[in-house]
Simulated scan of single mutants.
Amino acid sequence: MFGILQPCRHVLDDLRDEWRAHMCGLCLSLRDGHGQAARLTTNTDAVMVSVLTAAQRDASAITRTAGPCAFRSMRRADVVTSTDPGIRLATSASLTLATAKANDVVAEQRLALAPAAPARGHAARATGRALHRKATRTGDVLDVTNVLTSLDRQTDLESTSSDLDALTGPTADACVTVFSSSADLADVPDNRQALADIGSEYGRLAHLLDAIDDRADDDAGGAFNPLTATRTSDTEALARAQLSADRIAERYRDLVLHDDRLLKALLIDGIAQAVRRRRRAGERREIAAIGAGRQTWPPHPPADWPGGTPYPPPFPPDRSWYRRILPFTGVTFCGPALCTDHWNHCSDKYKAPLADCGDCCDCCDCP
């Protein structure tokens, strides 16, 4: 539940209205039941929980027409009502996980796992208490206490354990509770074990991807990061995440579902896209590091280049402006800069392609 799912509008295609109905339904449920500020806890992973519940039910989700909203360009839209089981579960999950996040900030300050920030700690403590009260009011659809108990173990493990599986365990346990609760609400008990397995793998995957995203900032600020603490490279973390994604796809086939087109686009395709996005971001960072370190073309010297001898740049650095701009124009407008790794003639640096067609779907790099 870290907001790792970012559905591509081209993959959603004719499912976009259904996706928006669940997303806006969750946002409005948080507003109507818990105040305007609660809408800040809305995230795409919680929306997926609503879609997951709906996919298991034979009856269609009940919708209503919502008024204009700035996030919909001041247009009306059909949204899933706040009484729908999936929306109720998503609402409870959003508030519960936001509470856990606030509690984690407080615990990190207490155990010195993050740079000292008293004001941030006090704000997180007050926010956590308010969110906990709101989450408790939704406890009829989700075992809030069980989820928070699982996630509260996280900080203690961070101060004592150096095992990556142990560090991702609390998130896995919390997601098991959330995912399996959807089977109870949909009244499909046969799905409970498969969803528990999917939730466990999803929790580990989300924790790993979140750690990859935060690693640079955590290392720079002196905050705890599970990958740094366990000396796990991003490549190894992505390999673990890919294994979890494969297991989720395998167990997904065991679920009893009705119309699962939107769920598959969000969960299966969304997870694959999330892993792929981090892998390609890592490749771009490596290319940028090569370019910054070598400033040469090609990025590696030929095999027969004498060891210890500087590899010269392919073009003289003091060449005139038109000798820079003409090759730059050709590389930029004739394709290489768009689709392949290339030499930037203006900056004399090795660059990654400007567009990465595999990052989102087969034809584009969607925002």
Rank of each mutant, 00 (worst) to 15 (best):
K264I: 03
S161K: 02
S320F: 13
R324M: 07
L15N: 06
D14Y: 12
A126M: 12
Q273S: 09
A119D: 10
G358R: 10
T228S: 13
A77M: 14
T228G: 14
T296G: 06
F315M: 15
L266Y: 01
L354W: 09
D348I: 05
E236Q: 12
L15S: 03
T81A: 11
R75V: 04
D143I: 03
L263F: 04
D217E: 13
D217I: 09
A237I: 02
G270A: 04
V79S: 03
A303W: 08
P306R: 11
D78E: 15
P298I: 08
P301I: 08
R39I: 10
G308H: 08
Y322N: 14
M1P: 12
T329K: 15
R133D: 04
C361H: 10
H132T: 07
G203K: 01
G222W: 04
V47S: 04
T136Q: 00
D218C: 07
L205Q: 01
G335T: 07
D356W: 04
G221A: 11
L151P: 01
A61V: 05
S200C: 09
R133F: 02
T160G: 08
A77E: 07
A119R: 14
T232F: 03
I287A: 14
R120E: 09
D14V: 13
D254R: 15
A100F: 01
P367S: 09
D341K: 12
C339V: 13
F315W: 13
R285Y: 02
V256T: 12
M48R: 05
M1S: 12
A117C: 15
P115F: 10
R9S: 09
I212C: 06
A183Q: 05
R319T: 12
A281L: 14
A59M: 06
T99F: 02
D13P: 03
D213Q: 15
A130H: 08
C69K: 02
S94C: 08
V105R: 05
